[in-house]
Nucleic acid binder design. Structure first.
Lengths: 154, 154
DNA sequence: TATCTTTTTGCAACTAATTGCATATACTAA
DNA sequence: TTAGTATATGCAATTAGTTGCAAAAAGATA
């Protein structure tokens, strides 16, 4: 689980201080219930904490990412974050055309990572891996020259 | 091959203009013979073309990446590029501790990409994928608490 | 509770990379 | 070879994200 209590304990165990800013940011992600853009987190945070700085938001999110409390998702060159749910870990596939993100079960990258480790003794960190590509709908549209096809990166 | 002539033909076929700046940047990458940082390309370019702008360097490299003439390698948050050699394609594994880049035979990510495509109809673009992680030397050092162990991202 | 130490914050300055725009130039066709 | 047009360049401004630093605050200890 990733409820408040568990996360607080994780932070305390690592001597990471529980500041109101950090608690707020984590609560926002928890409520959001899916990946959120940094700007979105920032503006939501300011409604309850007007003097919070964007630097604090970035620092908090990067810190939480390092200790695996949040997961980063790169959507169209902009960073997004979501709470890491230990039992429901997954990676993301992001369509470079429509920008949509799809969940990828963790086994795919785990297996890949194990191969790399076995063959090269290189230890990949696949936790925050985001796979870029084209989703099935956009691929289909572009093949059929569907008039509703529009690509963010043409 | 990726000699001047072949690349020029590729560009002409795509109606991409052969400007002295573009030719120079590609020649620098060809001479470099491995991945180079943008700043390195820029400063080398300026010795023969003093008025070239860094924006032109970025624009050229991104354009060449899009048409697969160069490959991007993300080394420690800074972008590096190298000429794509059609017969010797590979991905990169970059150590987040020592910053070194290692070549990865293309089969690994190709296989991974095929699985994704088969199971989700998502078409990943793995050409410019860079795998972050810890190389065997750094992993060994950190386990043994070797005094020469230093990590760029501790 | 009061005091102390260490971490964190807000602010401002900075960095790598991108973009808008007017001018310059590569290519096309006559 | 020249004129015409679409594209590319240089410059300046902008953006997303990071960092240094003094002041503020969290947590430990007495």
């Amino acid at each position: 689980m990733n409820d408040r209590r568990t996360v607080f304990k994780t932070l305390r165990d690592l001597s990471i201080r529980l500041t109101p800013q950090r608690i707020l940011i984590l609560d926002i992600l928890r409520k959001g219930n899916t990946h959120m853009g940094v700007e979105e987190v920032y503006s939501k945070a300011r409604t309850t904490f007007p003097y919070i700085d964007i630097a604090t938001v970035y620092r908090t999110l990067n810190l939480m990412k390092k200790i695996d409390v949040v997961t980063e998702v790169a959507i169209g060159e902009r960073l997004h974050f979501e709470l890491t749910h230990p039992g429901r870990k997954h990676n993301h596939m992001v369509c470079t055309c429509c920008g949509k993100a799809f969940n990828l079960p963790p086994e795919y990258l785990e297996r890949f990572g194990e191969q790399i480790h076995r063959d090269f003794s290189f230890e990949p960190d696949v936790r925050n891996f985001t796979i870029k590509g084209k989703c099935s709908l956009c691929a289909e549209k572009s093949e059929k020259s569907d008039s509703t096809y529009e690509c963010l990166s043409p």
